[in-house]
């Protein structure tokens, strides 16, 4: 296992009865990399992601996440990763400050650390005036940006983003990706799923899952070349059309 790998996965498999949701996937994600985890609905992305976050035990195979073994140290993994999805958001009936206190507390930050983090976050997002506003009163775009910041409150080594920009307006979507770039630039590894194929182009590397297996993995430009395609949308469609499993 290379020292540079933030995530290292070998032959990871998950079966539910006689259904193999994830079928022997193998890949490494480098430290500070933006890794796009693509696949059709039902290809096994969510199951794989749940295993990597320590939420579900694999049937077989090996994985090391943020330097910890998936079987032996799932709790350490959870402490060292952040997670955000379109669905999982913050508590709407808590203010921004209270959400920070809550999540900071969960991750064991001291009061002083929480205070500093909150101040930095508010300044960074230009939300100083909104610190005591209930989160549900914020526009969706702000909620998503805030949710991303809160998922990073404990300086995780890796952040998992599950369709973070769904339903967000096109300008905010791009601002969100600026935040992803910044996070990666400062050394955080970003593991992201999306249905927007233009966003796949922003990743350093992407993998495409079909029927539980990783069918392709490389940089977007190399994949476009390999599949003789104009861009990731075409690459994705070529690969996903082969899927036998239909589910979305």
């Amino acid at each position: 296992m290379s020292m540079e790998a933030a995530i290292s996965v070998s032959d990871l498999t998950k079966r539910f009865g006689d259904f193999t949701a994830v079928d022997g996937i193998t890949f490494d994600v480098k430290k500070g990399e933006i890794f796009g985890f693509l696949g059709a609905n039902g290809a096994g992305k969510t199951t794989a992601m749940r295993m990597l976050c320590g939420l579900s035990l694999p049937t077989s195979g090996q994985a090391n996440v943020a330097g910890f073994d998936l079987y032996k140290e799932p709790e350490k993994i959870k402490k060292n990763i952040g997670y955000m999805s379109q669905k999982f958001s913050l508590y709407g009936d808590l203010t921004i400050r209270e959400n920070n206190r809550f999540y900071g507390g969960i991750y064991g930050l001291t009061d002083q650390q929480i205070k500093e983090k909150t101040q930095f976050m508010l300044e960074h997002l230009h939300l100083e005036d909104q610190a005591d506003t209930l989160v549900r009163a914020l526009p969706l775009g702000w909620k998503q940006k805030l949710s991303f910041s809160v998922s990073m409150i404990h300086d995780p080594k890796i952040v998992f983003l599950d369709e973070p920009t769904g339903g967000v307006d096109p300008i905010t979507r791009r601002e969100f990706w600026s935040m992803i770039y910044e996070a990666a630039h400062s050394g955080t590894t970003v593991f992201v799923t999306t249905h927007y194929m233009d966003e796949a182009e922003y990743c350093d590397r992407v993998s495409i899952m079909v029927d539980g297996k990783i069918e392709a993995m490389d940089s977007p430009s190399a994949l476009s070349k390999q599949y003789n395609a104009k861009g990731m949308e075409e690459v994705f469609v070529q690969l996903a059309r082969k899927a036998i499993r239909s589910d979305n």
């Binding site: 696949g39 059709a40 609905n41 379109q86 369709e163 769904g166 339903g167 249905h195 194929m197 949308e233 994705f236 469609v237 996903a240 059309r241 899927a243 979305n248």
Partner: peptide
């Protein structure tokens, strides 16, 4: 088509 992959959307 929200949350639906590119192939199913087509």
């Amino acid at each position: 088509t929200t949350g639906v992959d590119a192939v199913s959307r087509q």
